[in-house]
Amino acid sequence: MLFEIGRVCLKIAGRDAGKKCIVIDNPGTNTVLIDGETRRRKCNVKHLEPLDKVVSISKNAPPAQVLKAGEELGFKGLVEQKNKKEEKPTAPKKQKAKKQAPAKGAKQQAKPAVSPKKAKEEKAEEEDESAE
């Protein structure tokens, strides 16, 4: 098995070409999970060039372990990858007053008995009568 867990590789293609990485998991035939100087990600085996070294590391090792192993090997520019969920502070959500939908029975009652237009007409008639 060439791309076994712990194999040190060089990434050949992509934005992070030329960076070293360690294989953490090999689920599929063509893809492999890597971590190291590159971001923690799935990678095609064709985009990796395996090197001689094999590191003893557990499957799906956390980033801290990979950091240690990488420092021993001489990886440059390693960044501690913190858990993204812990870092982001969530802003307090604004609670809007929910408008409760009235029940069917209540709808009929809510409608005014006399529409506003009719009320205005009635008022106008009354005024005319009083004026006369």
């Binding site: 060089l10 050949i12 293609a13 992509g14 934005r15 070409a17 030329g18 060039e49």
Partner: peptide, 23 residues
């Protein structure tokens, strides 16, 4: 291009160069 040797080498030539370096 956001890659090593971005505006200088094509992707294939970069691969060959890195492989030769690794071997």
């Amino acid at each position: 291009v956001a890659r090593a040797y971005g505006g200088v080498l094509c992707a294939n030539c970069l691969r060959m160069k890195l492989k030769a370096q690794a071997r």
